[in-house]
Design a protein around this nucleic acid. Structure first.
Lengths: 120, 120
DNA sequence: CATCGATATGGCCGATCGAACATATCGGAG
DNA sequence: CTCCGATATGTTCGATCGGCCATATCGATG
């Protein structure tokens, strides 16, 4: 139920000086894809709409091309959805996250064992 | 010349609620091992001694056992060095970093290509 | 043209963070 | 018993961050 902190590491992928994606941003993108709304996705993650909106801005501006498309008013009273690029970034991030955890699980387990003696 | 930001992602390994290690802490540990001093290592990384010292504290307290041993006064006028655990944590972190980069390089390259069209 | 829900922004505030400055302390050497 | 270099801490200041509250705007629909 807690995708980002499944126990191992936090992975932040840096594409350029300004473009990067980490656990929080990935979860937000996923939430937007699932709910079709920035505010709903933010609320589901326990963050204010303003913060969620700010993250979306940072994502769109950082990547130079929108990962999230927004709409105001209209039939559905506005909303937000991922662009093709947004879906691609999210999917690749999840894939990298999975690959990373597989690559580090042995060392993490060993380190946890090494420090567990004392906290027994 | 820039180990942490070789281009790919930032990896933070979470061992427990309080114990974790990321690129900055790893570099600091490496610097301490190389210089034998918290202040020298911090200065080399462009951070104040107080910040470096605070990171060492967080590391030692977070892991429940010291990763860095310090000494004041004496012949060498004090200094600091890694404990066996500290060396182990650093070595494993570097190994995980290498494994992670190998695991994500293909996706990172693909993503960079996907967003480079616009920033041309 | 009034309505409604979500986007879009601004302002205020308390918390946190790191830089900078200031000491205090240790402990072997001279 | 002074000196020196590095550890050990406290204080203050400015910047940033996120939360909270308020407000403005959009635009199809009824």
């Amino acid at each position: 139920m807690d995708k980002t902190a499944s126990g191992l590491g936090h992975l932040r992928i840096v594409l350029s000086d300004k473009a990067y994606i980490g656990p929080g941003r990935a979860d937000l993108l996923e939430g937007i894809a699932a709910t079709g709304s920035i505010s709903a996705a933010g609320k589901a993650m326990g963050m204010s709409y303003k913060r969620a909106w700010g993250l979306v801005q940072a994502l769109n501006e950082g990547f130079g091309r929108p990962l999230v498309e927004t709409a105001r008013g209209g039939a559905g009273q506005g909303g937000a959805q991922l662009t093709a690029l947004g879906r691609d970034v999210l999917a690749r991030y999840r894939a990298m996250q999975t690959a990373t955890e597989a690559a580090i699980v042995a060392d993490v387990t060993a380190l946890r064992a090494a420090i567990s003696d004392i906290s027994k």
